[in-house]
């Protein structure tokens, strides 16, 4: 790890100004960033520690029909929030399933959304992979058991964040501040518009640019007849990355699905909104058979590689399970 300038900003505005410096890295808890620095994959000249910015620690609260929280709220705080558990249990589940208790106690919501992919070629600095500016995506010919089964064309990473699909399902918004000279301007980014596909820009996974900081994250409180869920499959029960994951929100009216939002993750470079499946679900009565069929539909168009075809089966499984859980919550079996 090389020497760097360490900045301790007092708020998001100061952080954004500092972050405009060349080759600068923002640090939440650092559970992802510091790993990459140790591996030599990220070598910043300046590190801005967001944990000293007090407005990033604004508590989880209800405000004008939305749930709002600071970007540096921890995963543990999300998992344990009674408010979130009440209005959007899928988000609480997603936070609770991530990582280990130690990491959840430190890792932040914004950091979770912005964490870099876990691809073992990307994280090994001796592989000059295309994401790092090299010529090859080593996962095409190489070991791709955990890689993407959708949109795996240029770079086969999978999006690693548990919170990403569920915040997208909930219609979440990122409240960002941007340094423009000495000015700092706020702006909002819808979670669904946040992601960048490798074909657009292989070097990054979201639209943030230098000098931008996620100050807060929010989502509208779902209607009373909406149920949300997050379900993943994984190899180990104790801390493990999802093999496939699905977040869903279903609104039921008169025993029928009035609206559906379904997002897959861990299977493509970005979270995948399953619009076709959503449309197909609307107007139908929830049942196990329906959700099973939805699971199968969700795998349409998958392009598995040598070692990851099993993820197709596991995609169908998470979609079915997520929809069942969301439907159960919508009908009052929970929330």
């Amino acid at each position: 790890m090389k020497d760097f300038t360490y900045v301790l900003p007092k708020d998001a505005a100061e952080a954004a100004r500092a972050a405009a410096a060349p080759n600068c890295a923002l640090k939440g808890a650092g559970t992802d960033l510091v790993d990459r620095m140790k591996e030599g994959v990220t070598r910043p000249d300046t590190v801005v520690n967001l944990l000293t910015a007090t407005d990033l620690r604004s508590p989880i609260r209800e405000e004008n029909g939305r749930i709002v929280m600071g970007g540096a709220i921890t995963l543990a705080e999300v998992a344990e929030s009674e408010l979130i558990r009440k209005v959007a249990p899928g988000l609480a589940d997603a936070a609770a399933e991530a990582a280990t208790p130690q990491i959840r106690n430190r890792g932040t919501v914004a950091g979770n959304l912005c964490q870099r992919p876990r691809c073992w070629y990307f994280r090994n600095d001796t592989y000059a992979c295309s994401k790092k500016g090299g010529e090859t995506c080593y996962s095409i010919e190489g070991e791709n058991k955990y890689h993407a089964i959708f949109e795996n064309v240029t770079c086969n990473i999978v999006h690693p964040s548990n919170l990403a699909p569920i915040l997208q399902v909930l219609g979440g918004t990122l409240h960002v501040v941007t340094a423009k000279g000495t000015d700092v301007v706020p702006s909002d980014i819808a979670v669904k518009d946040f992601w960048v596909r490798p074909e657009e820009d292989i070097s990054r996974e979201n639209i943030l640019v230098a000098g931008q900081v996620i100050r807060e994250v929010s989502f509208p409180i779902p209607r009373g007849t909406t149920g949300s869920s997050y379900v993943e499959t994984r190899e180990k029960a104790s801390f493990d990355w999802a093999l496939t994951s699905c977040a869903a929100a279903l609104t039921l009216e008169g025993g029928k699905i009035a609206s559906a939002s379904v997002v897959l993750s861990s299977v493509a470079p970005t979270p995948l909104q399953l619009e076709a499946v959503e449309k197909w679900l609307v107007g139908k009565a929830p049942s196990d058979a329906l959700f099973r069929e939805a699971g199968t539909k969700a795998t349409d168009g998958a392009t598995p590689m040598r070692d990851n075809a099993y993820k197709i089966t596991l995609t169908a499984v998470v979609v079915r399970r997520a929809l069942s859980a969301a439907a159960a919550r919508a009908t009052g079996g929970g929330k």
Binding site: W120, Y121, T126, Y127, E141, G142, E143
Partner: peptide, 12 residues
Amino acid sequence: RILDRQLGQQVN
């Protein structure tokens, strides 16, 4: 131990 068939390094 998962070995990369390309460079021969252990990827995990």
